[in-house]
Each structure stands twice: as C-alpha cells, then as structure tokens.
Amino acid sequence: MSQVRIPNIKIAVIDDDLLVRDFMVTVLMYCVNRDVLSFDNGLAAWKYIKGHESPDIIISEIDVSGLNGFELMAKFKEKSPDKKCLLMSANPSNEQPARNSGADAFLAKPVTVNDLFIVVETFVVKG
C-alpha cells in the first residue's frame, strides 16, 4: 500500500496563453484530484488572492499583463510568506531575476507533463 498522501491543496495557474494555461490546469487537476484556479493576468489573480484564502501554490508566467509574475510574487509572498510561488517563462534571461527575487522554482518553457509531475512531487506530495 502506498504511503503517499495528497493534501487538500489549492493551486492557481496564471498565464495569458489559453492553450498553455488549460494544459497546465488539466495536468495539475488530474495529479492532485482537486479543482485548480486559473487566471489570464496577474491583476485578476491578485484580486482573487487578496479577497480569499491564499492558494498554497501559484504558478505564474512572468510576462503577463496587469501585474507581471515578479510583481504578483512580491505581493503574494508578502501576504503569505510560507506559500510557494513558481515562475515560468520562455525567456532565459528571466531565470536569474527569478532566482534573485525568491521564486521557489523556475519553469523554463516549453514545459512537459513530467516537469509538472515533478512540481506535484516536490511541492504537493513532499510539501
């Protein structure tokens, strides 16, 4: 019998590319068997986060409108310092700034199903 346990977790995905966003939501929803929030811009995500209990994990594209990934992460970490923020980008020059600004992970596009499985293993199952 497996000793693995999936906690009751809330994840939010922020990306203005509908195909990418929906793909990530499908993978994550399948993995954790929970609903997954999704937003097409940083401001909409922040409005939700401000008015509700923070998601346990946010996964945000850096180059989104409203608030970009760095700005969203700064506000999110200020409100919920113990929660996880993963930034993603297709631009390699964003990696070092993501590291410097305290992101918990950097997802370099294109991401695969296996990358998202590792996200779940690392940040959901192992907590």
Binding site: D17, E95, L107, A108, P110
Partner: peptide, 15 residues
C-alpha cells in the same frame, strides 16, 4: 530555487 523544463538554449514559447 529549482529549475525545471527546457535547457536555457532550448527555451521558447509553447507551440
């Protein structure tokens, strides 16, 4: 910070 996904030289938007 952990890095996942493509190598830096192979990074691009998802088609």
């Amino acid at each position: 910070m952990i890095k996942l996904g493509a190598d830096s030289v192979e990074m691009r938007e998802m088609s």
